[in-house]
Amino acid sequence: MTIPTDAAVKLECRSVWKLFGHHAASVYRVSGGQLSDAQLNEHQLIAGVRDVSLKVHEGESFVIMGLSGSGKSTLVRCMSRLIEPTGGEIVFNGENLLAASDKRMIEVRRHQMGMVFQHLALLPQLSVLANVAFPLEIQGIDRARRERRARELIELVGLGGREAFFPRELSGGQQQRVGIARSLSVEPELWFLDEPFSALDPLIRREMQDEFIRLQSVLRKTIVFITHDFDEAIRLADRIAIMKDGRVVQIGTPEEIVLRPADPYVAAFTHNVAKAKVVRTSALMRPHDGRSTSGRVPATATIAQAAPLFGPEAGALEVVDAAGAIVGLIEREQVVTVLLEG
């Protein structure tokens, strides 16, 4: 996956706040949008989301990572207004959603958003086919059309042949595939996934992540993906936002976060990550000084991928961009240092 550098902004959060508790709205209004821990305590408010600003670009896989209770679910629900933010702005395709009418929100959610839930939220009384077709049924699309679309999606997520099963007859991984297919049935522009794989066994989780990468390479959706698993975040993200106590403490590409964690909290996550598998050559390369090199490596390759390309005595490799133009070089010692860091 590559980082869409100057793609259009699909979704933007501007100083979004969500406070839980009595009189949250009035306390927030009086404070003028800035509340300290002490003030929150005094008014017995719980801050789900605190002053979050971020941009999600078109076609980007944006992962929100944080420990349980850090406000990820609350934030993602603010983005679709499933939870009404206490303050701030949610701008979707240039439109401030917080100013949209109920009717407009129904339209937006029907046609432009899809969501996968942590605990699946499959409707037990509906078959796999009917579950996947459900969002279309709600829109009043006729049976033949919605079922045709549902069958395509069931095929896409690899559940072909199980259309007539009921959710309870499927394994956890299969159930989540149904959830994924259902969320895609309306061809959403913006795809929310709230810890979709957290409830699954580690092996199945890995398999589902691969499946997800495959899907995304076909679909190229704009994605907001929630997880509490840093490894999962690194595997799937173009960019990661790390949350703590309702705040976003760092936003960056996986390698930015691994190379330069903003604070000890973030560093604790990156500590155990094999940097060589995250850091790309483009992040370490130096300007080409004209010396002789023993080969070429793409700028998008990770250090782990670049290491075997060094010959027995070569000191450096040329780094090339997607078009094949030389953009810099990378030296053996740099690679060895990263590899030794684990």
């Binding site: 029907r110 409707l123 709600i138």
Partner: peptide, 8 residues
């Protein structure tokens, strides 16, 4: 939430 999310 699913109900609301699919625009019911």
């Amino acid at each position: 939430e699913l109900g609301r999310m699919v625009g019911a």
